[in-house]
Design a protein around this nucleic acid. Sequence first.
DNA 1: CCTGTCGATGTAGCGTCGCTTCATGGACGT
DNA 2: ACGTCCATGAAGCGACGCTACATCGACAGG
Lengths: 300, 300
Amino acid sequence: MDVRALQTLRAVRTQGGVTGAAAVLHLTPSAVSQQLAGLTRDAGVPLTERVGRGLRLTAAGDALADAALDVAVALERARSACAEFAGSPTGTVRVSAFQSAARLLLPGLLTRVAARGGIAVECADEDVAQDAFPALADRHDVVVAHRPAEGPAGWGDGVRVVPLLREPMDVAVPVDSPLAARAALAPADLDGAGWIAVREGFPVARVLDDIGVRAGTVPRVVQRINDFHVVEALVAAGHGIALLPRYSCGGHPGVRLVPLAGVRAGRQVDALVRPDVAERRVVGVVLDELVALAAELRRA
Amino acid sequence: MDVRALQTLRAVRTQGGVTGAAAVLHLTPSAVSQQLAGLTRDAGVPLTERVGRGLRLTAAGDALADAALDVAVALERARSACAEFAGSPTGTVRVSAFQSAARLLLPGLLTRVAARGGIAVECADEDVAQDAFPALADRHDVVVAHRPAEGPAGWGDGVRVVPLLREPMDVAVPVDSPLAARAALAPADLDGAGWIAVREGFPVARVLDDIGVRAGTVPRVVQRINDFHVVEALVAAGHGIALLPRYSCGGHPGVRLVPLAGVRAGRQVDALVRPDVAERRVVGVVLDELVALAAELRRA
DNA sequence: CCTGTCGATGTAGCGTCGCTTCATGGACGT
DNA sequence: ACGTCCATGAAGCGACGCTACATCGACAGG
């Protein structure tokens, strides 16, 4: 039972296919397919089944992929077992964050980690649909992701979740709007307004829907924009109002953020780490700095 | 970090050297040495150090060997994860037992396992010094071992221990001896007697010493014989008395077993299994049958 | 003190295994 | 029906790990 093939199986599951797995593993699809064939051979049962032009894991394959994760954890523990004796942790950690969190967290993280010395942090900004965040954990060691604060965590069980921040969502209105004078806004106050939302399937898209449900109406979405800076510019120009996170949006002069009243609306920012890479000491250090930084920001 | 090399490191520890490990792994010493070199290279710290003409694991090597065991367990769990889907357990299990336990347990075990079908049991009888029992777990799946019943288990932490039987040790005396008429014998009754003991370092050798300590004298050992049948023949011929396990010694007509009074003396029979092989379903089945058989014998 | 043995470790050579490249075969959308 | 996408085979090549053999140091005996 080849260990590399086991990890490949895991990647096939998270990436949803041979081609995707091949990409994150830096292999050709053919190699992945061959590994799967070999694994199936000495498993004795089919691990994958074709569905359309892609494929999917069978129940046995799913169980084996779960076990593969434990194998990876044990292996990484072995690595760090002798890293204990090798001195202070060293290496490079790849961190990915969605745009606004990257702006909020990465600068501070880099200085904090640099202060300890010996650890390199490779940053990347990747913002994807909510379902796709866990898959990023194959390409990066730490993935900063976000989701509606209310409701369950919802990041499958292939990743370890480290909560970082809970950020309220405020209503962004033009400064010259009558709404801007209010201290707080109830859902009823917003009835009939034109909303600038994020693209379907992306995090916090559902938050707006929830507000609509509580108000008894369907929010009228006039635009779908993911970049908050663009949203601010549109709001300032009077093209609609929007839900924006309170802290990670640098105040556009033409926009005012007004708290919501009557409903809890927020987004939760989490760090996602694959259990095996969580065993690496360096990753643990970076993660510690990240939560410490988040705590500091929460106090400010 | 190569998995095979990790298991090799484990074997080097249990077998006490490169040559021994090579033997149980069916490799040449050179291959083992090369694996160790490679492992040391990507561990970054020395894992072994020379001592005399042999070698010993360093602290880092010891920690890594511990971790290697967890890796093996995780891997075996992966194997059995899809074996769940492959139907009823099948395969061959290698069982080793010391002489008297083999006589007592193996016949019943074979019939019990044969009744289930699909599982082959390869038997072997190996009786070694007490310290050497755990090392046998590299060559066999299940090792039936024995030790003084009083005192701690004492089988290192590289094996899982499954208790099977506790067997009292009786005093074997010639039937024509005046001692044979007694219902029980206290240590004081045996003062000055000539003992036939087992070889130094072998299990239950210390039981006799314990009795001496309680009686305040040092037992006078006249012979050291490991095979209980030979011991019985010598006792019957009047060459000394001996401590023999009550159940697993078929009564020699010239020998009578008299219980000890005043001291608890017994041997504990355990099954030793390496944690990773314990994950194999077949091994679990055989082990279950073994404890069931032992329970049945205990009742009889 | 020298010698023989034992155990670990290097070196040369060979087999095997897994990867890439290229080609094939279904499945879906236009 | 055609082109595209995705998984999978076949051929070839490179790398890795093994065996066989030689070497070196450590211990025991003459």
